[in-house]
Design a protein around this nucleic acid. Structure first.
Lengths: 197, 197
DNA sequence: CCAACCATGTAAGCTGTTACATGATTGA
DNA sequence: TCAATCATGTAACAGCTTACATGGTTGG
């Protein structure tokens, strides 16, 4: 029980922040400058992961120092970052992890981020496996919440607290359904053609 | 445009953390020691708001320094905290705020926390108003996500990104339904008897 | 020429995390 | 008596936020 378990702030990974992973995924999809990355955060629901220069530029520097990204044209004007092989590897390792109950329960947005980036990583089988683990984790968490509601501690809660927990229960069931539907949509049918974008 | 708008980390309030509000709400329901508060976080889904002594004890001290809580038996052994009038007021002000789109979109757990504590604060009318604003905010956010998906930026996204945003859309719709159902359940019917607990 | 946007950064401060430290009480 | 649990804290550090500081480019 020393270290090892329970990371949380470090996005369940080895020293890379959630913002760091978001940057890695975006840069892999398309090499970009810090400013271009900021624009993505400002104009899409990805904004959840960050905002202002004060976080993005330092995060990019830190990724560069860790050897996960590098400037495509060192020296020159626009500072466009690309992934290094080490960065590819770190991103792949992060995306390869199955979703667990902790992740759907407390960091579901992170699981969704991984899903989004998985498009550039895995084939239909890999996506299917990811969504299966997502659905299983969501169902497991739903079962945990149900068990809590039925436990002495759960029954001792105030009415409003119970109703709030019921929100969590509905929400996670909804997520499980999404995973099942997404699986059906993405791993069936034709080859869907290319990379999207 | 100096300060004032946009707080986020400070839970949309005046200098009180989300953890601070969680502590205020729990202490109002029942005066407790730091240890007892930790137990609550460890054994209920409220664990989302904190964890270890390293955050709770400093937060309690900070609330005490701000005059929002006080020790019930100053000097003696067990350090049981109670709300001061100022603490009551701060909590009430926080609970009185209607839910807005930003809150359901990015801090929905905070809105649920407020709902839970609202049981000790408002009558059926107040609860109804809160849930109405919750539902309206959720529907507004759903509309925003739909608009984004239909916009050029939304259409330019990769397939997986779109599917991830669809998760958000389903999720927020589910929350809107919860609010409507909770409203029906809590503001109708008989007097439901007492305070729960 | 001036405003708006492109583009990159730094500094201070706050919150929370991990890990460590301490001592009292209770029960087998 | 020894372990577990009660009970309270501190120290170091990471990460993000806000706010400030610069400059270059473009277009009206």
């Amino acid at each position: 029980m020393d270290a090892r378990e329970s990371i949380d702030a470090r996005a369940q990974g080895g020293g890379i922040t959630r913002l760091g992973y978001a940057l890695l995924g975006l840069i892999r999809r398309e090499p970009r400058s810090g400013y271009a990355l900021r624009k993505v955060f400002e104009t899409t629901p990805l904004g959840r992961y960050s905002s202002s220069p004060g976080s993005i530029y330092p995060a990019l520097k830190s990724l560069a120092k860790a050897g996960l990204v590098a400037l495509s044209a060192p020296g020159g004007g626009k500072q466009v970052y690309v992934l290094t092989p080490a960065g590819q590897e770190a991103l792949s390792a992060w995306l390869a992890r199955p979703v667990d109950e902790e992740e759907v329960g407390r960091h579901i947005d992170l699981a969704l981020l991984r899903f989004a980036f998985l498009q550039d990583e895995a084939d239909a089988a890999g996506v299917g496996a990811f969504l299966d683990s997502f659905e299983a984790a969501a169902k497991a968490h739903a079962a945990s919440l149900e068990a809590f509601l039925a436990s002495p501690a759960g029954l001792a809660m105030t009415l409003h607290s119970r109703v709030a927990v019921e929100h969590g229960l509905r929400s996670i069931r909804c997520s499980a359904e999404w995973a099942a539907d997404a699986r059906a949509k993405l791993t069936n049918s034709t080859g869907e053609g290319g990379k999207g974008q």
